[in-house]
């Protein structure tokens, strides 16, 4: 499912002293099966943008098309839009409320009025995807650890079987292990089910590792868009927007400055490892 955003503008509290233009004429095209990394400084409009994509907030101007159809054309279909475009907010564990993990994950598909066996299937599959074992199904979600809570909450969105999955900082405040588990689950989902993923993140490392295309927001506008290899070399521009390139690329910059003949476009640690091993082999020869 593709998303087209045409001239999207959003103004909070128009006509009052608290008026704020959060989005300013945003135009974007997101294709089926893409993995998008959405980055931007705090207040750049990322959250406002993603909340438009499943119709949670109405655009002040402009339109959002899903497979060419305006999501606000028919009010009754908004629920269908929200099923197809799954959105997991920042700190999604704060939305947990049910008595058991299973029932909380089933909240979404139940609201979608899916048949009972379909709900059961979706819930189990979602919980398996995020790596939660059967032993927690009947536990209270409030008894889980922080990382488990986060995964249970994300499973609550996955259980609706969305075709597009939007995640707002899914790894904020997690330990490295929890972070890896969630990112691996997302990557798996993208590869196996070919769903479109939009990952909002402040971690350039995560974005460099996962995203196929990066969208950079700045002051309510799309400042840049392109592959990681196109975006991250523009370090100076990124830094002016309060962002940065992945840390490993700074290491490579330093190495280059000290006269080592290394490529400039290394952005992930895995890649760096390969390149450095290769380089050391050559030096030995």
């Amino acid at each position: 499912m593709s998303i087209t955003i045409n001239h999207l503008t959003h103004i909070y509290n128009p006509g009052t002293a608290f008026e704020k233009k959060a989005l300013d004429d945003v135009n974007l095209q997101i294709e089926t099966g893409e993995f998008i990394g959405l980055i931007g400084h705090t207040g750049s409009g990322k959250s406002t943008l993603i909340q438009h994509l499943n119709g949670l907030i109405l655009p002040t101007q402009g339109e959002i098309l899903l497979d060419g159809e305006n999501i606000h054309k028919d009010k009754m279909r908004l629920k269908e839009v929200r099923r197809r475009v799954g959105l997991a907010f920042q700190y999604p564990e704060y939305q947990l409320f049910e008595m058991t993990v299973y029932r909380d994950v089933a909240f979404g598909p139940t609201n979608m009025k899916l048949p009972a066996d379909q709900i059961h299937e979706n819930v189990i599959s979602a919980l398996q995807t995020v790596g939660l074992g059967e032993e927690v199904y009947e536990q209270s979600p409030f008894e889980l650890s922080g990382g488990q809570k986060r995964r249970a909450a994300i499973a609550g969105v996955l259980a609706m079987n969305p075709e597009i999955l939007i995640l707002d900082e899914p790894t904020a405040g997690l330990d490295p292990k929890g972070r890896d588990e969630i990112l691996d689950a997302i990557q798996n989902l993208h590869e196996k089910r070919k769903i479109t993923v939009i990952l909002v993140s402040h971690s350039m490392e995560d974005v460099a590792r996962l995203a196929e295309r990066i969208i950079v927001m700045h002051r309510g506008k799309v400042a840049m868009t392109g592959t990681p290899k196109e975006i991250f070399p523009r370090v100076e521009e990124l830094e002016q927007m309060g962002l940065a390139a992945p840390q490993i690329s700074y290491v490579f910059h330093q190495l280059q400055e000290r006269g080592y003949d290394l490529p400039a476009d290394v952005f992930t640690t895995e890649e760096a490892k390969e390149v450095l091993l290769q380089f050391l082999k050559q030096v030995k020869k």
């Binding site: 909340q51 499943n54 949670l56 629920k79 929200r82 099923r83 799954g86 959105l87 997991a88 907010f89 999604p92 704060y94 939305q95 947990l96 409320f97 909240f107 979404g108 609201n111 979608m112 609550g156 969105v157 609706m160």
Partner: peptide
């Protein structure tokens, strides 16, 4: 918004359904 994203509906339904739809907001 988080519950609406999971298909929660606060505006339509009978009085009982409306009251029940508050639980996913009030508990968190």
């Amino acid at each position: 918004k988080a519950q609406q994203a999971r298909g929660a509906d606060f505006d339509t339904g009978t009085l009982k359904e409306k009251a029940q739809s508050l639980i996913p907001i009030l508990v968190p």
